[in-house]
Design a protein around this nucleic acid. Structure first.
Length: 271
DNA sequence: AGCCAGGAAGAAT
DNA sequence: ATTCTTCATGGC
């Protein structure tokens, strides 16, 4: 196991980052976070002023938590809008994680029309039953496994009507090299994602943001709709997303995450 | 009982 | 090209 330390600042907070709905495989016990990402594991402790990361791969998690990006500069460059400033202040320590592409695809297939605690539970069961045993924890299942298991199996772990999406997307991705997709411009990459059964605009944008680190996207979910329904009452979710990307440009991904976390927190979390 | 949750597919218009 | 209906599941 490797260790590294990161100073706790107003611009980086592990709890806010993990709890902001972009990642599902973590738990908190007595202020200690246990996180699984792809085939990796990290234990993060808040030691009175700095974070201690104990993990299998320090380089992986340093990059994963996006610790080379200056979030103060990003926040300082945002427009002077009341709601946005309140949202940034509320989730000031959120970073956009650089997560595994495959993990984001299957995770956000499961996320649609679902609740975060349930999403976490379904993914956990999938990892336990499908993922490689890493000794004490399980890796996120690979595409070959998602293609292999049956629709009935996915229903048995609680996926509901999304079971077919998981099966068919697994079969589709067998013949895909996702590393090639990483070189595509955002628009074209979104098109590839939309060709997957069960991936619509919102899920595609979440995969683009969290799985490809594309910041020029603005996922519009039920919470973001609440934020902008007064300002854009007639826009469909897709047009709302396009409008917001025009408005916030390459900062769209950050802005979306701050607003999502703020609105969901204000609206009353269901844990 | 009905509505909601990090929505999308398929059908109807 | 848009709008409507249906789709599991569980909490409230």
């Amino acid at each position: 196991m490797e260790k590294f330390y990161v100073e706790k600042t107003p611009y980086f907070d592990v709890k806010e980052t993990l709890d902001s709905g972009q990642v599902f495989r973590f738990r908190e016990e007595d202020g200690v976070f246990t996180l699984n990402a792809s085939c990796h594991k990290a234990i993060i402790k808040d030691l009175d002023g700095r974070y201690e990361f104990t993990c299998d791969d320090a380089d992986y998690f340093y990059n994963y938590f996006d610790l080379n990006t200056d979030y103060k500069e990003i926040q300082d460059s945002l427009k002077d809008e009341n709601t946005l400033l309140d949202a940034v202040n509320y989730g000031k320590g959120i970073h956009i994680l650089k997560q595994d592409t495959e993990e984001m695809i299957y995770s956000f297939l499961i996320s649609q029309n679902n609740m975060i605690p349930r999403i976490k539970a379904i993914i956990e069961r999938a990892c336990v039953k499908m993922g490689e045993d890493m000794g004490g924890y399980f890796a996120f299942p690979k595409t070959e496994k998602w293609a292999e298991m049956s629709v009935d199996f996915y229903k048995s772990i609680g996926a509901g009507y999304r079971a077919e999406y998981l099966k068919r997307t697994g079969e589709s991705l067998i013949s895909v090299d996702l590393n090639e997709w990483k070189n595509l411009p955002t628009e074209e990459l979104r098109g590839r994602l939309l060709s997957l059964h069960g991936v619509g605009r919102k899920v595609a944008d979440c995969i683009l943001l969290f799985g490809f680190n594309r910041l020029d996207v603005f996922p519009v979910d039920t919470w973001i709709k609440k934020v902008f329904r007064d300002e854009y009452p007639t826009l469909s979710p897709e047009k709302m997303s396009k409008t917001l990307v025009e408005r916030y440009g390459d900062l769209s991904g950050y802005v979306q995450q701050w607003l999502f976390y703020y609105k969901r927190g204000q609206g009353g979390r269901k844990v």
